[in-house]
C-alpha cells in the first residue's frame, strides 16, 4: 500500500488548511457574543436569533429560493434539449452559431451578461423583478446544464435508442423510456449545478432585478460592503452547513451505489 511522503503530506496539510481555516474562523466568530468580530467575548447564539427575526433577510432568502428552483428547473429542460440537439440532431443550419451560444455564456464575464440583459429588459420596457432574474439565471444556467448532460450523452450507447425503436417505440417514447432514465444522474447534477449557480449569483441578479426583488446575495452584499457583521457570519454558517450536509450525503449515496454495483458485477462474473 502506498503511504504519504512527507512532501505530499505537507503540501496537502497546508493546502487544505488554507482552504478551510477561513471558513472555520467564520463559523467560530458567528458564535461570538461581541458585536466586534475581532474580539472574542464568549459563546453566544444570539446572532442566529437576530438573523431569524430579520424579516428583510428572510424575504430575500425566500426570493432567492424561488428564483433558484424555477430557473434551474427551466434551465434543466432547455439545457437537456440543447444537449440532445448538440449530440444527436446532426447538421442543421446555424449549428455553429448554436454551439457558440451554448459555450459563450460559460466564459462571458458576469458583468457583461448582466449588463446586456438589463439593456434588453429596459429596451423591451419589462418590469424588472423575480421574473427577469429567473429569465437571466435560466439563460446562463442552461448552458452549464447542457455541457453536463451532453458529456453524458456522448458516451451513451446509441444502439440502446435504436433497440427501443426496433422494438416498436416512437422516437419520443424511446427518449422517455430509455434515454432519460439512463442519463438521469447527469440531468440531476445539471439541475443541482444550475440551482447552486442561481443561489450564488450576485452580479447578474443585481443588474436584472428591480426594486421589487432583492436576492440573498444582494442583501449580503449591501451588508458586507459596510464591513464584517456577526449576523452575516451566522448566515454564512447556516449556508455552509447546508451545503456540507448536502454534498456529503450525495457523495455517500453515489459511493454506496458504486459499491453495490461492483459487488453485483463480481457476483455475476462468479456465476458464469
Amino acid at each position: 500500500m502506498r503511504r504519504f511522503s512527507w512532501f505530499n503530506a505537507t503540501a496537502l496539510t497546508l493546502g487544505f488548511a488554507f482552504l478551510y481555516v477561513p471558513m472555520i474562523i467564520l463559523i467560530v466568530y458567528s458564535f461570538n457574543k461581541s458585536k466586534l468580530v475581532t474580539v472574542w467575548a464568549g459563546f453566544s447564539t444570539k446572532w442566529y436569533g437576530e438573523l431569524l427575526s430579520n424579516q428583510a433577510m428572510l424575504d430575500a432568502a425566500w426570493v432567492t429560493l424561488k428564483v433558484a428552483v424555477i430557473s434551474s428547473s427551466i434551465a434543466t429542460i432547455l439545457g437537456t434539449m440543447a444537449a440532445y440537439v448538440m449530440v444527436r440532431a446532426g447538421r442543421f443550419h446555424g449549428r455553429t452559431l448554436f454551439s457558440g451560444m451554448i459555450y459563450a455564456p460559460l466564459v462571458m464575464p458576469e458583468v457583461i451578461t448582466g449588463l446586456s440583459l438589463l439593456l434588453l429588459f429596459i429596451g423591451l420596457n419589462v418590469d424588472r423583478g423575480v421574473g427577469t432574474i429567473v429569465l437571466a439565471h435560466t439563460t446562463f444556467a442552461m448552458c452549464y446544464v447542457s455541457v453536463v448532460v451532453s458529456s453524458r450523452l456522448v458516451s451513451f450507447d446509441q444502439s440502446l435508442e435504436e433497440a427501443a425503436l426496433d422494438l416498436g417505440c416512437s422516437p419520443f417514447q424511446a427518449f422517455r423510456l430509455v434515454t432519460l432514465p439512463i442519463i438521469a444522474p447527469a440531468v440531476i447534477s445539471g439541475w443541482l449545478l444550475a440551482f447552486t449557480l442561481s443561489l450564488d449569483d450576485l452580479v447578474i441578479a443585481s443588474f436584472t432585478s428591480g426594486p421589487a426583488a432583492t436576492t440573498l446575495p444582494m442583501k449580503i452584499w449591501s451588508s458586507v460592503r459596510l464591513g464584517v457583521s456577526p449576523e452575516i457570519n451566522a448566515l454564512s454558517t447556516i449556508m455552509i452547513a447546508l451545503v456540507t450536509v448536502g454534498v456529503i450525503t450525495a457523495s455517500l449515496i453515489t459511493k454506496q451505489q458504486a459499491v453495490r454495483q461492483r459487488r453485483e458485477e463480481q457476483a455475476a462474473d462468479r456465476v458464469s
Binding site: Q261, E264, E265, A267, A268, D269, V271, S272
Partner: peptide, 9 residues
C-alpha cells in the same frame, strides 16, 4: 438487472 448477469447470459 443486465449488470448482474454474465456476458453469455
Amino acid at each position: 438487472k443486465p449488470h448482474q448477469i454474465s456476458g453469455g447470459q
